[in-house]
Simulated scan of single mutants.
Amino acid sequence: MTTIEPLRWVKSSYSDNGGTCVEWAPAYASATGVVPVRDSKSPAGPALMVSADAFAGLVALARSTQL
Rank of each mutant, 00 (worst) to 15 (best):
S42V: 08
P43Y: 09
S42A: 09
T20I: 07
A62E: 04
T20N: 13
T65V: 10
L7Y: 08
C21R: 02
A60W: 11
A29L: 15
S64L: 07
T65A: 15
W9Y: 11
G19L: 03
S30M: 09
I4N: 06
L48N: 01
K41H: 07
T3V: 08
M49R: 08
T20R: 07
P6T: 13
W24L: 11
V35N: 03
T65L: 10
L58F: 14
M1Q: 09
Y28G: 02
C21W: 01
T3P: 02
R8I: 14
S64I: 00
R8A: 15
S13F: 02
G33W: 08
S13T: 14
Y14D: 01
A56P: 06
A47P: 00
G18P: 00
V22G: 06
S64Y: 09
D53V: 15
I4R: 11
S13I: 07
V10M: 12
P36R: 01
L7P: 02
S30L: 10
E5P: 00
P43F: 07
L61K: 09
V10G: 10
R38T: 02
A54Y: 01
P26K: 13
S42F: 08
V50L: 09
E23W: 05
P46S: 14
P6Q: 14
D16Y: 03
G57R: 10
W9A: 10
S42K: 09
T3D: 11
T32N: 08
T32Y: 02
V37A: 11
R8K: 13
V34T: 11
S51H: 01
P26N: 12
A27M: 08
F55C: 05
A47E: 00
K41C: 02
V34N: 04
G19R: 08
V50T: 03
A52M: 12
V34K: 02
E5H: 12
V37R: 00
I4F: 13
V35G: 07
P46H: 13
A52H: 13
K41A: 07
T3W: 06
A47K: 01
W9Q: 05
T20K: 05
A62P: 00
T65P: 01
P36W: 01
R38M: 04
G45Y: 08
S13E: 01
P26Q: 08
P46T: 09
V35S: 13
F55T: 04
F55V: 04
T65K: 11
Y14C: 00
V37P: 03
A52I: 11
D16R: 04
P46V: 04
G45F: 05
S51W: 03
D39C: 14
D39W: 14
G19I: 04
T2N: 04
